[in-house]
């Protein structure tokens, strides 16, 4: 996997298939490579055909791994999906935290966090499709994972919020996040995922305005 600055990895780059036959690599290296390729495989397959139409055969074909080997690592497509989802979430969270840690004030941290997430998704729009677009379509258990990730994202964005910032209800906070996800999803669905970073000012303004007022939010968003 391609390692990012924060030490986590984009879970779906073009993973290198190990040479066939005797290569002398330790068993754990081979296992990690195969598991990573299956994760990359499910991300690519879900992006192409959607979760509901993705089959284990498709995933294995994308990963270049046999069905038998698939079951060495995962009991089901759903289990593989969750492993990929967790890997992406970890990557996004680490990127967001690293970006916001460089900033001083809370609104600046929010701006950096949103930019960090947009950078990850712009670099690989399949990750946005996998984490934002597909889960609501994939049934209750997977949707529940999206809701839980949303709660983590709200907690992350509001961490360090000053006491003087306005209080808004948890429903509005969840709706703000769902609204931001809708904007990102729409752009990805339109095939413009590589252009996600241009959404940063609107999304920063949208998220910050209820907390600090529009004028301050605009100033931070456009700075």
């Amino acid at each position: 996997m391609a390692e990012a600055r924060n030490g986590t990895q984009d879970p779906s780059p073009g993973l290198v298939r190990l040479p066939p036959g005797r290569h002398g690599l330790p068993r754990e290296v081979v296992a990690q490579n195969q598991r990573d390729r299956l994760i990359a495989g499910i991300i690519a397959t879900v992006a192409e055909v959607g979760y509901n139409d993705a089959t284990i055969s498709n995933i294995c074909a994308a990963a270049g791994i046999s069905r038998r080997t698939f079951y060495t690592y995962f009991r089901s497509k759903e289990e593989c999906f969750f492993a990929a989802y967790d890997a992406i979430a970890e990557h996004v969270l680490a990127t967001v935290r690293e970006a916001s840690a460089r900033e001083g004030s809370w609104p600046q941290k929010v701006r950096a966090a949103i930019a960090g997430a947009l950078e990850v998704f712009a670099a690989n729009p399949d990750l946005a499709r996998f984490t934002l677009i597909e889960p609501p379509r994939a049934g209750e258990k997977i949707s529940a994972r999206l809701r839980a990730a949303g709660d983590v994202a709200v907690a992350e964005l509001t961490r360090g919020k000053p006491k003087r910032a306005r209080t808004i209800s948890s429903d509005v906070e969840r709706a703000l996040l769902a609204g931001m996800a809708a904007v990102v999803s729409q752009r990805v669905e339109a095939g413009r995922g590589g252009d996600l970073l241009s959404l940063q000012p609107e999304l920063v303004e949208l998220f910050l305005t209820p907390y600090i007022g529009r004028d301050k939010a605009v100033a931070i968003a456009r700075d």
């Binding site: 609501p136 209750e140 949707s143 529940a144 809701r147 429903d171 969840r174 709706a175 703000l176 996040l177 769902a178 609204g179 931001m180 996800a181 809708a182 904007v183 999803s185 729409q186 959404l199 609107e202 999304l203 949208l206 605009v218 456009r222």
Partner: peptide, 27 residues
């Protein structure tokens, strides 16, 4: 103000409400 707001704000408003509705229905 004269800032060049795009349609994204309206997408976020509707998307946020629908997203919340879907979450409630799923629960």
């Amino acid at each position: 103000d004269p800032r060049p707001h795009g349609r994204e704000i309206a997408v976020a408003v509707v998307g946020g409400a629908i997203g919340l509705l879907v979450q409630e229905l799923q629960k």
